[in-house]
């Protein structure tokens, strides 16, 4: 198990990060291609990078806007899901310690107790979203097997991380599962939801433009 751990935090992590970055670049290239003047003059005229990043940050930060929507509770759950999905791994002390030890640089860290709470929030939000996907007819109709798989794939690293932090169960096995599933998640992220996010941003902007005409 030592060799497996060494492999997972060494070459496998590098491979996962490389695929993650390459995947994002490919995704962005397709996105830019779709927005090229030749293919879609209208899309090109209404999407600019400043607006795109502004929209992403705005969606993450501006809980006020989310709450003022037609389904505020749903908006809050979605916001918590995405904020915790990004925030906990990035600002977890243990992760930043490993970055610091390996590359002498890291992001600021949240206290462990805060991350622990946010992990529980994420797991709960994930469970609620999954339940809604099963229970609500309009969501069930548009849900695919891949959508259900994503709930599982995003949930496992957090559940395993929570169990490892509290040292419940076989520690080494759980930590290794945590790393394996987190690396799988890193690899599939560019090929799944960011595409959906980009789609939402562009269509959101189109709607905004349509309403202004």
């Amino acid at each position: 198990m030592d060799k497996l751990y060494e492999f997972l935090v060494g070459p496998a992590l590098w491979a996962a990060f490389t695929l993650f970055v390459l995947g994002l670049v490919v995704r962005l290239a397709y996105f830019c291609g779709a927005l090229s003047k030749e293919r879609s003059g209208f899309l090109h005229s209404c999407a600019d990078l400043k607006w795109v990043f502004g929209s992403i940050i705005g969606k993450l930060v501006a809980i006020k806007n989310v709450m003022s929507g037609s389904q505020p509770l749903w908006g809050i759950i979605l916001f918590l899901f995405h904020a915790c999905l990004l925030g906990v791994p990035l600002f977890l002390l243990a992760h930043n310690m490993l970055w610091e030890e390996a590359y002498s640089m890291s992001l600021p860290s949240l206290p462990d107790s805060v991350c622990d709470l946010l992990t529980v929030v994420f797991i709960a939000a994930n469970a609620v979203l999954l339940a809604a996907r099963i229970v609500r007819t309009e969501l069930r109709r548009i849900s695919t097997t891949w959508d259900y798989s994503l709930h599982f794939l995003t949930g496992v690293p957090f559940v395993a991380g929570f169990l490892a932090y509290h040292q419940i169960g076989p520690y080494r096995l759980i930590l290794i599962l945590h790393i394996i599933f987190a690396e799988i998640l890193l690899i599939i992220i560019p090929f799944s939801k960011p595409g959906h996010a980009i789609h939402t941003i562009v269509t959101g902007k189109l709607k905004q433009l349509q309403s202004s005409y």
Binding site: Y5, Q167, L175
Partner: peptide, 10 residues
């Protein structure tokens, strides 16, 4: 230990 919880034992 080499993993966090192998030395920081609860």
């Amino acid at each position: 230990g080499t993993m966090c919880g192998e030395c920081h034992i609860r």
